[in-house]
Amino acid sequence: MRFLSPDAYAKSIVASVQDYSLMCARAVANIFTRPRYTADIFTQMDSIGVGSLPIVVLTGFFTGCVLALQSAVSLKEFGAVNMTGGLVTMAMIKELGPVLTGLMVSGRNTSGMASEIGSMKVTEQLDAMRALGTDPLRKLVTPRLVAAVFMLFFLTIISDACGIGGGAFVAVTMLRLNAEQFFHTGYMSLAHGDIVEGLVKPLFSGFIIATIGCYYGLRTSGGTRGVGQSTTQAVVSSSVLIILVDFLVTQLMIGIFGR
């Protein structure tokens, strides 16, 4: 292990951020110019969207269940058990749906992208691709970016629905609450801004998942061990970034909608 002096370390971080931003900018710019790899977009949508469906449905559902149980305990103290539906719905749509979906898909697909592109890098397949006249950024990064942003949006909606469904299931079967009232309080608790907030967050998560996964894949070096390392680093970075950006977006939305 090599130790860097503090200023060399700071420089390397600045350089990485610069490389990352440059890659993101080029990946986005590629969306608007030819050639486009549409078939690759659909392959990635299948892998990210359809592949992540079970994990998103299950985590969403059980998060809703837990949320209903926990909030009912607290609400009971105030004699407001009826409000369980409102709390579950609000929490799922604004916060837990987007963040959990982001984290789950990140664990699954950021690692997949980093290791796939990383092994292509260390076996010179990326160089071979360039030698054969293809820009790897266009062929590999842009389709993943488009697919991840698009799919995260819908996966989050599914997760929200499953969470609310799970909450309702617990409320009716274990808390003996009225299903109609559960959904009614849930519906009433939501404002326009909450929905916007819940639907903007996955766009950012999708962007982070694809760009971080590809970035760590592209800068892999050092054989199979390097692939393992960049995979781990990619998942860590994207998870932290998803939560950080979630915080920033929440802050921004409170500024815009006042709640």
Binding site: T123, E124, Q125, A128, A131, L132, T134
Partner: peptide, 29 residues
Amino acid sequence: LVMRSHVGMVFQESALFDSLSVEDNVGYR
């Protein structure tokens, strides 16, 4: 990319695309 369409390159460890069949590898360009 234009220049490389006039150049053929064989890599040290072959660097075949392992997700593609021989036909698609060879016909890639």
